[in-house]
């Protein structure tokens, strides 16, 4: 899978930018520090959207494409935001035949986001997961680390409401 790119507006704060600029200033003398700068940037912002990679590219005097090439090479770097509430819907075979695909779609509909995306307020993010071994409870999803099983489409709004939607 190619890495998914965030399509949300960027909401960096001045404080975050100041932190990143300080990291860049401390490292710009040596382009081999690119990955280290990106790691710190991800620690500051939680992910590496275009605006952040741009700052790095300009600050380090490295083409943006190169920064992006590095970001998409290493598993650790994320181009999408993870929400405070991270929902993973199991799309393993057992869950899928039991309708987890429908639940996944319903979540996308209610949250107004696609898979591997995050709501604009940074609250909810959604992803599909492989089998988590809870086939007896199928279909299942996890919210952060909590497992919800034997779901129907109608349970979705209740779960979301529990997390403040």
């Amino acid at each position: 899978m190619q890495k998914k790119i965030s399509n949300l507006p960027f909401h960096g704060t001045a404080e975050q930018e100041a932190k990143l600029q300080a990291v860049i200033a401390a490292n710009k003398h040596d382009k081999s520090h690119l990955m280290g700068v990106m790691q710190e940037a991800q620690a500051i912002y939680g992910y590496l959207p275009m605006e952040v990679q741009n700052m790095i590219a300009e600050g380090m005097d490295i083409p943006l494409e190169k920064v992006f090439g590095v970001a998409t090479f290493y598993a650790q770097f994320s181009l999408t935001q993870k929400g405070e509430v991270h929902i993973a819907v199991c799309l393993g075979t057992a869950c899928y035949v039991k309708g987890s695909g429908v639940i996944y779609e319903e979540l996308q509909k209610q949250l107004g986001i696609g898979g591997d995306e995050c709501t604009a307020d940074g609250k909810f993010s959604l992803t599909a997961s492989r089998c988590i071994g809870a086939c007896g409870l199928a279909p299942v999803l996890t919210v952060n680390d909590e497992v919800y099983g034997r779901l129907t489409k109608d349970d979705v709004s209740g779960i979301l409401a529990k997390y403040g939607k």
Partner: peptide, 18 residues
């Protein structure tokens, strides 16, 4: 340098940032 390799493995693709 607007062209580069992105992603990896079978998904590797040549292209522009983002």
């Amino acid at each position: 340098g607007i062209l580069g390799a992105n992603d990896r493995g079978i998904d590797t693709n040549i292209g522009q940032a983002f």
